[in-house]
């Protein structure tokens, strides 16, 4: 582990309004400034399609990461690789996995599988979890806490740089207080 990676490896809870530009700006800021070809990216997404994520990345960064795994927490998303996309070429790979939002165990295993796959490369792993607010629509706070605690622990192990989105307006203060203890850092953006 390089010194630089040790410094950047952490789990950040980002509190920002769900649809705001500030949220997206912070997201890309936390996804680091390294050359995309040197990083692996894991995105966990509840309400957006893989295509939109890829387009957004292309707009903001141009080149896709070396390896991208998108876990769509939504039964409507089809697993498997997307067809002809810029992200799945000779230089870059893309895998789309799906998980049922009501099945926390299944999601946990899918993320474990994704991290296992990405940890085979030497690239720095970036993770975006969008969002904790959506997670809480399907499971109670205590289950969410156990899940986030488990996941952030795993991210530490593989030396990943991760952030988790949460809309502060959608939750009671005590929910945020309970969950934030499992993260290394907390960023409030917007207002």
């Amino acid at each position: 582990m390089s010194a630089e990676r040790a410094r950047t490896a952490k789990n950040v809870l980002v509190l920002a309004e769900a649809m705001s530009d500030a949220k997206t700006d912070t997201c890309y800021e936390l996804l680091g400034g390294e050359e995309p070809s040197d990083i692996d990216l894991l995105r966990v997404v509840y309400h957006r399609t893989p295509e939109r994520l890829l387009d957004e990345w292309a707009d903001r960064r141009g080149t896709q990461p070396a390896n991208t795994v998108i876990v769509g927490v939504d039964d409507r998303v089809q697993s498997g690789a997307l067809g002809d996309t810029a992200a799945d070429s000779d230089d870059t790979s893309l895998e789309v996995l799906t998980a049922n939002p009501n099945d926390l165990t299944g999601l946990g295993m899918e993320l474990n599988n994704a991290l296992t796959a990405l940890s085979r490369t030497d690239n720095h792993v970036y993770v975006c979890f969008d969002s904790v607010t959506a997670l809480l629509q399907f499971v109670d706070t205590e289950s969410a806490y156990k899940f986030l605690h488990m996941f952030t622990g795993q991210l530490h192990k593989v030396d990943a740089t991760a952030h988790f989105h949460m809309d502060p307006d959608a939750h009671e203060t005590q929910t945020i207080s309970r969950l934030k203890t499992t993260f290394d850092d907390l960023r409030r953006v917007g207002d």
């Binding site: 299944g106 946990g108 295993m109 474990n112 488990m150 622990g153």
Partner: peptide, 15 residues
């Protein structure tokens, strides 16, 4: 553990 950090999946076919 099959999930990690002390947690495992129930011993069921789908997992």
């Amino acid at each position: 553990d099959s999930i990690g950090e002390g947690y495992s999946a129930p011993f069921e076919s789908k997992y």
